[in-house]
């Protein structure tokens, strides 16, 4: 049933693919974190951006990620947006999760008491300083667990990129399967890898959370 020699043979290819998967995850999540924060901050600082941002967030959240990936990859070029598969994938995943992260940040901002804004006005702090030094450091620690959940969720959705032939784990496993007619080993290994990475990132998130709590003593 299980062929160890075959396993050993496909391991290097899968390892390379795992690197791609991790890269997509990290880059995508960095986009999600920063773009999400930018969206949430814009909504607070620039009232006129509220409606367009809400519409964008709603649009992206109510369509499947797979369709967004396809759209960006196949329809993008007709708008002059030609990107390679990897860039497309990272961008699609990042923007998609940015909308989720922006909602998380928003909840974080709302959890900061009004008195903090008022004290900042009374001290004559500018808007940017208030956000950077007073509000954001209080808004983010409580939402780290929620952001962490989205990191794991994003990671688990990276196999969708196999649809545009990014050589991440799933795509690599499928290729191996179709060439050798053996699917058991590659698909099992991919599953195990996702399991292991999910556990590792859950652990890492808890560490980050503990560190932040210590730093900001809430």
């Amino acid at each position: 049933m299980w062929d160890w020699a075959f396993t050993l043979e496909i391991l290097p290819a899968l390892a390379r693919a795992a690197v791609i998967t991790v890269e997509v995850t990290i880059l995508g999540f960095l986009i999600a974190l920063t773009l999400g924060l930018a969206l949430a901050v814009c909504r607070i600082a620039l009232p006129w951006t509220r409606l367009p941002i809400s519409l964008l967030v709603e649009l992206i959240r109510s369509t499947p990620l797979l369709i967004q990936i396809f759209f960006l990859y196949f329809v993008g070029p007709s708008f002059g947006l030609t990107l390679d598969a990897m860039t497309t994938g990272v961008l699609a995943v990042g923007v998609h999760y940015a909308t989720y992260c922006s909602e998380v940040y928003r909840a974080g901002f709302e959890s900061v008491p009004r008195g903090q804004w008022e004290a900042s006005v009374a001290l004559n702090l500018g808007r940017a300083t208030t956000l950077r030094d007073v509000i954001i450091p209080q808004a983010i620690p409580p939402v780290v667990p929620a952001l962490g959940n989205y990191l794991v969720a994003l990671f688990k959705e990276t196999p969708l990129l196999s649809a545009i032939a990014v050589l991440e784990l799933m795509q690599t496993a499928k290729i191996i399967g179709s060439q050798t007619f053996r699917y058991t080993e590659p698909i099992t290994l991919v599953g195990l890898f996702f399991l292991a990475m999910s556990l590792v990132s859950a652990w890492a998130i808890r560490r980050v959370e503990a560190g932040i709590n210590r730093r900001y003593r809430r």
């Binding site: 008195g115 903090q116 004559n124 702090l125 007073v134 450091p137 809430r218």
Partner: peptide
């Protein structure tokens, strides 16, 4: 009435923030 100190800054930093930034 409710103090509204910045909870993530020490007493000293609470008093330094605005003089430095403003």
């Amino acid at each position: 009435q409710s103090f509204n100190l910045f909870p993530h800054m020490t007493a000293l930093h609470n008093c330094m923030e605005a003089p430095v930034k403003v």
